[in-house]
Simulated assay, not measured.
Amino acid sequence: MRCSNYSGFKTRLGTRDAEPPTDAEAEAKPDAVETRASLSPKARVAKLVRAGRDLQKGMASWYGPGFHGRTTANGEKFDMYELTAAHKTLPFGTRVVVHNPRTGKDVVVRINDRGPYAKGRILDLSKAAASALGLKSRGHDAVVLREVLPASRDGEMIATSASAGE
């Protein structure tokens, strides 16, 4: 027996069972496709880099406003709007691909600080990197660190930030 209010289950958008929108619905909603033109130069580099083997898995958090402008462990000023991270053991300047399995997003960060000092964390991301991974609002999330493969000769990928016009 069903409740008198029952109107049936609606399929979620993006699932296999979802029906395509009608012509009227398609015209009413503009396309929400993210273009490369809308990405910053640093984010464009991250989209073009291939990841290698997994280096480490664990929890990552982010830091920013309280540390913005302060000196990092490698001597440069911390900028929460750059794609950087703090790791306990990786050498300064190392670039790694950080993958968030929950959101499916990747970002390439450069290690420029030491930390995190919270128990159980493997990485502290800058505010920009956390936003790019979709974990800023949660504060922390599970991530996978992957190596950045060296640049290929055929221009298939870009592994240096200098090629993005910085």
Rank of each mutant, 00 (worst) to 15 (best):
W62E: 12
K57M: 14
K127P: 00
R102A: 13
V49N: 02
M80E: 06
V97W: 11
L133Y: 04
V33Q: 10
T84G: 11
T160N: 14
L55W: 08
R50W: 06
K77H: 06
A37Q: 12
K136F: 04
H99I: 00
F67N: 11
K88I: 01
R36H: 01
P150R: 07
G58K: 10
T89V: 14
D23E: 10
T71N: 04
A28Q: 11
G93K: 04
R153I: 15
L90A: 12
P91V: 05
L125W: 01
R102N: 07
D17Y: 03
V49K: 03
A73Q: 07
A32C: 00
G165I: 11
K47N: 05
L90C: 02
K127L: 04
E156F: 03
R12H: 12
L39K: 15
Y117A: 07
V33M: 04
R53L: 06
T11Y: 01
L55N: 06
V148E: 06
E19K: 13
Y81K: 14
K47M: 11
G14L: 08
R36L: 11
P20L: 09
G75W: 02
R36A: 08
G134A: 10
F67H: 11
G58Q: 14
A46Q: 11
L123F: 01
G165E: 10
T15W: 02
A132H: 05
L90N: 05
K105V: 02
T84K: 07
L149G: 03
E76F: 00
K105Q: 14
G93N: 03
R121N: 01
G104M: 03
A129E: 03
K88A: 10
D106K: 15
A142I: 02
D106Q: 15
Q56D: 07
M80K: 09
A37Y: 06
T71Q: 14
G66K: 15
D54A: 15
M1N: 06
S152A: 15
P21C: 09
R36S: 04
P20G: 01
V49S: 13
R12D: 11
I122H: 03
A73N: 12
A28L: 14
A60N: 04
A162T: 07
H99E: 10
A32D: 11
A151W: 00
S161K: 13
Y117R: 07
H99L: 13
T35E: 11
A73V: 13
P65S: 15
V107L: 09
A164C: 12
S4P: 08
A159R: 07
D106P: 05
F78Y: 15
A132D: 12
D113I: 03
A73F: 03
N112I: 13
F78C: 03
A32Q: 11
P116Y: 01
S40A: 15
Y63T: 05
S131L: 12
V97P: 07
S4G: 04
L55F: 07
T160H: 09
T160K: 08
K57C: 09
A26D: 09
F67C: 02
N112D: 12
V49R: 07
G104K: 05
Y117S: 09
L83K: 00
P101T: 12
P150L: 03
A130Q: 09
R36Q: 10
